[in-house]
Write a protein that binds this DNA or RNA. Sequence first.
DNA 1: TCTCCGGATCAAACCGGTTTAGCAGGCAGT
DNA 2: ACTGCCTGCTAAACCGGTTTGATCCGGAGA
Lengths: 361, 361
Amino acid sequence: MTRPGRPTISDVARAAGVSKGAVSFALNGRPGVAEETRQRILEAARTLGWTPSHRARALSASRAFAVGLVIARPPELLGADPFFPTFIAGVERTLSHRGQALVLQMVPEADEEASYRRLAANGRVDGVFLLDLRVQDTRLALLEELQMPAVTIARPDVPSRYPALLVDDEPGIAAAVNHLIELGHRRIAHVAGPRHFLHGTVRRRAWERVLTDARLPIGMVVESDFSAAGGAQATRELLDRVDRPTAVVYANDLMAIAGLSVALEYGINVPGQLSVTGFDNTELAGYVTPPLTSVRTDPFGWGRAAAHALLDLIDRGPSGDIPTPPAQLVVRASTAPPPKPARRRRPPGQRPPTPTGSEKT
Amino acid sequence: MTRPGRPTISDVARAAGVSKGAVSFALNGRPGVAEETRQRILEAARTLGWTPSHRARALSASRAFAVGLVIARPPELLGADPFFPTFIAGVERTLSHRGQALVLQMVPEADEEASYRRLAANGRVDGVFLLDLRVQDTRLALLEELQMPAVTIARPDVPSRYPALLVDDEPGIAAAVNHLIELGHRRIAHVAGPRHFLHGTVRRRAWERVLTDARLPIGMVVESDFSAAGGAQATRELLDRVDRPTAVVYANDLMAIAGLSVALEYGINVPGQLSVTGFDNTELAGYVTPPLTSVRTDPFGWGRAAAHALLDLIDRGPSGDIPTPPAQLVVRASTAPPPKPARRRRPPGQRPPTPTGSEKT
DNA sequence: TCTCCGGATCAAACCGGTTTAGCAGGCAGT
DNA sequence: ACTGCCTGCTAAACCGGTTTGATCCGGAGA
């Protein structure tokens, strides 16, 4: 007659002829167990095929051994953004090495607060990642109220006692704008993300700052929503202006790629008559026509670093913010000098797509 | 002096003047508690702000109240594919209503088996979704060995006692190929996904079958990897042939969009000289030039249905496979009649992009 | 009045670990 | 020989729920 179910620590204790407590000590490598006994216990555990019950450990340690990630975006916007899967892959890389799991929640924005509350009340996670920070984000206060450890991705614009992964979109946008200025552009527009998102605002401000420093006008900005449809619509608005821009800095690749199509539809050659830059350096950026100059970010690395920081916070208490390397501008064929003031039609000379592209900081 | 920590069921019992057991019964709506007592207990729980401890419940019920999803893909391939985020969003929609959580693991392919084993050994989940089925997938046997409930997305090509969500790519591909045949195409190529993936093989077979039924040749197929780079490379191979195809059916949108750029690079007009179809109907499909004819699938709905099926399997035992509505072909401007045999150069007449597109089954 | 029955309730065991208090025995110090 | 201390281990409590077996009680039936 075989025992049903997995062997427990009591089975191991019986097999090794010791008490439960001794087994627990031996398995956790704690002192107070004779070396010979320890070996006997480990041997018994091995032959029985014992594995620790995560559930029992979680209850007695009052820990979940899991961290949470709440994503509040409409599902149709989620698919097109490569950020999340890549970030999560990075997170996992760290977590799996430390025996932790990731609990993912994807909820409508209206359910977001409830989602955090439930996660905390149930004790399902020991901490969370705070992503897609918003301007004056109310979630920080919520998490402090819930006494939930957290790591924020980017430094919030409200006081926060949580460690932040210092991703800063400013240098990437600045590199793009400077690149365009160096090429000779003067009318540089921006298709921005929603202003209530911190990264939407940060990117717009970066664009403004560089233009202001160069004494160029900052009037040409259209706020959009990071979607292809939004990018297309914003591009139309810009191209319909009488003082049409000679370059557009988009807040992400998806909008930029949609913008490329709109330019083609208008019969405006890119990069001959219009330069375009994206942000994210998505896989597709190198494979559209023309290949898109973009800012390469590192969501995978961020995920790894953020997970590290969160686990350290949980295990060892507060520490400082985490720096990240600056993003790099990847120059491809969608940017070129602006057309000469005398409107000369240049033939739409195709450059072959170069997936790699050269780099500038 | 306030008690530290959350109130437990014992606190509620004390406050209501009853035993732990009575509280448990009352809270779970089980019979054997007088109505008046039940109300008193619920009232006490409410005023104390009691919430059930997921950990304790999991231990005593020997259930995790969570399901797992293991994704084994190289991270760089993950970002571009909109399937996973959308599928997961659908899964969450169901799970959150049922108090379940999703444990997500993203691992290198080499660690995949270990990942399932760990999930099972730890008892972290009560079941898993099996995605990205492979030809002769070995994970089915693994999961049966681990006695882990599962739902497969698509019916495997090996015997399986698990319920399957019957997603079938065949009708979608068939619709695309038939659409091209009706337009008059005779040389219809296919850029396939990896043949070791079931969906890669299924889509290729569907393409073959329709062509064979129409007595058209099935020679023009290039196996690729679902990536933009792979799609571009495969397209080059096809366009370099002396008997260049007049239409290409791509196994996903990402490869198709990369293919559009290659055609442009070759000076081949789409759809004038070459028709192109994608698969997935990604957000970008409607915003490239020309807008891409594609097959619309419903990963969100699949996620919802799969989660339903998995929870039912866990709670109520085996049931049947789950049907899904057939995919729809979304016709946009990337498909048109083939060029006339007499090679007449047609001007690259732009059609404005129409994001919506008309539909055919 | 006595018996029987069923509903309401309680105490205790249980899930599978971790942790603490305590005990036995060996050895050194005085 | 007695005290003190350290090592190696056991027994029991604990984490916070669920479930079972026993008990108490009031009302129906004989």
